[in-house]
């Protein structure tokens, strides 16, 4: 089994549009949306949700006012400024609570409860291209990395059961905890960048992250003709960093048109230049050495 993870560093470079288009080109695959913070893949995939599960992401400290003697130990110990005192009452601000349980364990009166928190939901769905595992992290919740790990584990488990050889994962932006959770043990990552100062800066950082975790990386350039000088810089950087450049896609309003129609780029117009470019990239990715090697999963 193999897994390709689509990343970018910078948001809005076309990760999800490209993931969707690839899905329509693969003969058989499992889709996984690992952007649990702001998931969009479902807007193109129109998934038929078959299972819904709660994601229990952690615990939250709640002070039991009947037992609290107001000693203030919790406030002293809390490193996250989550405990405040007003009108001689100590309360925990849920937004700040890290769920570390230090106040819970060290309260001399055992006055702090530590209920589990449902931080979101995850789903198993059917789509026109194959099964899909996706999720929705609750608003302002933590533990997005754990939810990413969970959806990827579930995608893997189900792919194994159904003898599906390829998992295609739409990753989150950035380089922090959800991104790290989205790339561990992947066969390869494909970085979607754009020829802008931000696109290049962020591609370098996510490329360094992939190198740090020893995951083979490839890069493709979206809207390459927006700025040809910057496109040449990307080509140069990719070469220096040993990241294979697998193709470039022209600036094309078809990306937005397809999105509005809830279709993939290729479904929307398979003859467009962008569709042709996406097809070429897909073949180049699948022919890459990283995607030829079976990884133990």
């Amino acid at each position: 089994m193999k897994e390709l993870v689509i990343l970018s560093g910078k948001g809005g470079t076309g990760k999800t549009s490209l993931t969707a288009a690839f899905a329509g080109l693969a003969p058989s695959l499992m889709l996984c949306d690992a952007d649990v913070d702001a998931a969009d893949l479902h807007l193109i995939m129109s998934p038929d949700i078959q299972q819904t599960h709660d994601f229990v992401g952690g615990n939250e400290a709640v002070i039991n006012q009947d037992l609290c003697t107001g000693c203030g130990t919790c406030k002293e110990l809390c490193r996250f400024d989550a405990v405040s005192e007003s009108d001689e009452k100590f309360v925990v601000d849920a937004l700040n609570c890290e769920g570390c349980g230090v106040c819970v364990d060290l309260c001399p009166e055992n006055a702090i409860d530590f209920p589990q928190k449902t931080c979101g939901q995850w789903f198993v769905s059917a789509t026109r291209f194959g099964p899909m595992v996706h999720a929705r992290l609750g608003i302002a919740e933590e533990n997005s990395g754990r939810l990413v790990t969970l959806v990827r584990e579930q995608a893997r488990k189900r792919a194994r059961e159904q003898h599906i050889e390829l998992i295609l994962t739409d990753g989150p932006p950035g380089i922090g905890c959800p991104v790290i959770a989205s790339m561990g043990q992947a066969s390869a990552v494909l970085i979607v960048t754009e020829p802008t100062v931000s696109g290049i800066h962020d591609m370098k950082r996510v490329g360094e992250l992939a190198a740090h975790f020893k995951i083979p990386a490839m890069v493709c350039i979206n809207k390459y003709d927006l700025n040809l000088d910057q496109t040449r810089s990307i080509e140069k950087i990719a070469k220096e960093k040993n990241i294979a450049l697998v193709g470039q896609i022209p600036f094309d309003p078809a990306f937005t048109q397809a999105m509005i129609q809830c279709k993939t780029l290729v479904e929307n117009d398979e003859t467009s230049r962008a569709s042709q470019a996406v097809r070429d990239i897909w073949h180049a990715v699948m022919a890459s050495p990283a995607m030829k090697i079976e990884r133990l999963m």
């Binding site: 702001a38 969009d40 807007l43 992290l137 608003i139 302002a140 919740e141 989150p172 932006p173 509005i260």
Partner: peptide, 28 residues
């Protein structure tokens, strides 16, 4: 602020007087 809706965004927006939400007129 960073993108998303989880802890990094909350940390950035917390205790500010106003939030400008930048969007684009697309389904995503």
């Amino acid at each position: 602020a960073p993108p998303g809706t989880s802890c990094p965004v909350i940390a950035a927006m917390k205790d500010t007087d106003f939030v400008i939400l930048v969007t684009e007129p697309t389904p995503f």
